[in-house]
């Protein structure tokens, strides 16, 4: 009896999810379509961009020849086939396969953004829950501080941190993801990477923390007033169990939702911070490629990052279904 019920539940769960995944596939296709056409309507081109900043003078013939050389002749069909075969073309600027460029930049970005995001979420959440639990002067102070931090854009904190800790105090490196050509062993290399990551990490961490904290605190305060929390308290459960098993467990839901929403903005955040610290991630790459109108690279990065956001959202949606049983039966 019990198993039957469970199987049935899994079955409906799956069929429901195939439908969702279909929608995501359609979304992905639209993204590819946009990724193909949008860069093509971008004003300016690689040749103009290259020579507008240089002293070199080229004749009109030469320019026409260059433009023809770099013009995009790929049709949409060819583009799709190329995409699937991971043949994303050559970067005009770096003269390297675009896929190589992206995959060498990706780990850096993932490491930086992932750690900042996750830590900001976990710490912000716990701090928010605790703040809501012990309302008082300390809580008021932290809320004020967080609201202030929430208002400070990462471009400001980034530059400030760079100025103070890298340029004035010289405690941390000002640029790069690792010490170039150091030839460190595995362990030393790891430490070196961490050392380089600290400033951009802190910048991002403080950019993400206040939102998480304020949201967690807000939703926890609402949860604390709900009748089921009174039930849990009345049951004489230990305080930790009441706070986390019943309270925080429910306060988690909006925080997770926010994580998904914020993830879409991840790349913009990365763009600014990575550029400030010259961090060898996707953001820096994107910035450079846009500046130089490196069409294949822009196209690939935009597409890749939007697909990444889409994937994360799918993952979160599935995760949310486990977190909140109430949305499971909804269509």
């Amino acid at each position: 009896m019990k198993m039957e019920g469970k199987e049935l539940r899994i079955k409906t769960f799956l069929s429901h999810n195939t439908r969702r995944i279909m929608t995501y596939l359609i979304a992905a296709f639209l993204l590819i379509l946009l990724g193909y056409y949008l860069p093509r309507v971008l004003p300016g081109d690689y040749v103009t961009a290259m020579y507008s900043q240089s002293q070199a003078i080229i004749t009109e013939e030469e320019e026409a020849w260059l433009k023809a050389e770099y013009a995009d002749k790929e049709s949409f069909c060819e583009y799709i086939i190329a995409l699937v075969t991971l043949d994303w073309g050559y970067s005009l600027v770096f003269s390297e396969p675009v896929s190589d460029l992206i995959f060498s930049a990706l780990p850096w970005t993932l490491f930086l953004l992932g750690s900042a995001h996750l830590l900001a979420m976990i710490i912000g959440f716990i701090a928010g829950v605790e703040a809501a639990w012990r309302r008082g002067p300390l809580e008021k102070l932290s809320v004020g501080l967080m609201t202030f931090l929430e208002g400070a854009p990462e471009i400001a904190t980034g530059i400030l941190l760079l100025f103070i800790f890298a340029l004035v105090l010289g405690w941390f490196p000002a640029a790069g993801g690792e010490t170039a050509y150091a030839g460190y062993g595995m362990f030393r290399w790891g430490l070196d990477v961490l050392y380089h990551t600290i400033l951009p990490f802190i910048t991002l961490f403080f950019a993400y923390l206040p939102g998480n904290f304020l949201l967690a605190r807000g939703s926890m305060i609402v949860i604390l007033k709900s009748p089921f929390l009174k039930t849990a308290y009345a049951k004489g459960l230990p305080s930790l169990r009441v706070r986390y098993g019943h309270g925080a467990r429910n306060a988690l839901l909006p925080v997770v939702t926010r994580f998904g929403l914020r993830f879409s903005f991840m790349l913009t955040g990365a763009l600014v911070v990575e550029t400030i610290f010259s961090y060898p991630g996707l953001g820096t790459l994107l910035f450079k490629s846009i500046a130089l109108r490196d069409l294949p690279l822009i196209q690939a990065i935009v597409l890749f990052s939007s697909l990444l956001v889409l994937t994360v959202n799918i993952a979160l949606e599935i995760c949310y279904r486990f977190l909140d049983p109430r949305v499971r039966n909804e269509t």
Partner: peptide, 25 residues
């Protein structure tokens, strides 16, 4: 001490509504 007393010695049936139960458990 009150916590230990609750439910063990005295328990309560709350005014009925689904809201007195945790929605995610």
């Amino acid at each position: 001490s009150y916590r230990k007393l609750r439910w063990r010695t005295m328990a309560m049936v709350f005014q009925n509504s689904a809201a007195v139960l945790n929605p995610v458990q």
